[in-house]
Design a protein around this nucleic acid. Structure first.
Length: 299
DNA sequence: GGTAGACCTGGACGC
DNA sequence: GCGTCCAGGTCTACC
């Protein structure tokens, strides 16, 4: 049997408007394991899987327009296809943002729009569960521990978590009450009761996806809207306390209003960007953070 | 449909 | 040190 080399280098030709750092660092999930951005080398690091077993350490840089992908260990053709497919999902290489950029000059200038996501929808859902109702540092820790204890370094697969007890996940990963939700979802995905592929169909309607996501135990209105955004449905705003804070501060809104009123006001404000309301909102937030978004461990 | 309280965790803060 | 509060919510029971 031929053994793979220690290192393989792949080359990916991305869409012309892709700026690697902007795509990676414009959404907080780039700080959640197994993701990492190395500012010194301007490299995005992650760990992907080829099949359920093989873990591949990946480093992506953009020395020219093309992406340079370094894989350790080296990969053969089938594994290379898997690496390319997963990076395509992570960096949204198949999405076209030209219509959004026509409406938003600032986002166009910044090359903004490709918000990083995970290699799989399962990982996106679990990551969303770990960022709810918790300080950011805790979310970082939960994802590190999930990778360490249940994913052998990579993000755990549904089958890896499905065979685990919720109390073990809770104890080892410090995820608290989220453990039961995570294990339940993993079991449903592994058993085929929750069809992940259904959501990946680009023709799906955002409302339809939202309704199905809400069936998942642990996915409320905020989480479902956030996951819809990750699926490419940008016409839905994941409104949370951070949105309220941002809106009150940036748009000088009277803080005496009730949340429901503020919620409607926020939706009206971004309506002009339909169907890209979320991107317009997130651009404001990201632009306001500036380099702090990359440098700090808080959002 | 709207609201209140419980739920894990860990850091920040006041005492 | 210790208690309390809070963070990019969700669920359940109750009205």
């Amino acid at each position: 049997m031929r053994m793979p080399r220690d290192v393989s280098v792949l080359r990916i030709t991305p869409p012309a408007d892709l700026v690697l750092k902007t795509a990676v660092c414009s959404y907080g999930y780039f700080k959640l394991a197994p993701n990492r951005w190395d500012e010194a080398s301007q490299a995005y690091h992650t760990i992907v899987r080829s099949g359920d077993e093989q873990l591949i350490n990946v480093a992506v840089t953009q020395p020219s327009q093309a992406l340079r992908v370094t894989c350790r260990p080296g990969v053969w053709r089938t594994d290379a296809v898997n690496v390319r497919r997963q990076l395509s999902r992570i960096l949204r290489l198949d999405e076209d943002f030209s219509a959004f950029h026509k409406r938003h000059a600032g986002a166009k200038r910044a090359g903004f729009g490709r918000l990083i996501r995970s290699a799989t929808l399962f990982e996106d859902i679990v990551k969303t569960m770990t960022v709810c109702n918790v300080a950011w540092a805790n979310s970082v820790r939960m994802n590190e521990l999930l990778c360490e204890h249940f994913g052998d370094g990579g993000f755990p697969t549904p089958s890896q978590l499905a065979g685990s007890r919720a109390d073990a996940v809770k104890r080892k990963c410090k995820v608290g009450y989220r453990a039961a939700w995570i294990v339940r979802l993993a079991r449903d995905v592994a058993a085929g009761k929750f069809d992940v592929a259904w959501f990946e169909d680009t023709q799906r309607d955002g409302d339809e996806s939202f309704d199905r996501l809400r069936i998942i135990h642990g996915v409320g209105p905020y989480a479902a809207n956030n996951i819809c955004m990750l699926l490419g449905h940008y016409d839905r705003l994941a409104i949370d306390t951070e949105t309220y804070r941002h809106f009150k501060q940036v748009h000088q809104v009277d803080t005496a209003g009730r949340d429901a009123q503020l919620h409607r006001r926020i939706e009206r404000h971004y309506e002009k960007y339909r169907p890209y309301q979320y991107l317009a909102y997130w651009y404001e937030l990201w632009h306001g953070y500036g380099d702090r978004f990359v440098a700090e461990d808080t959002r």
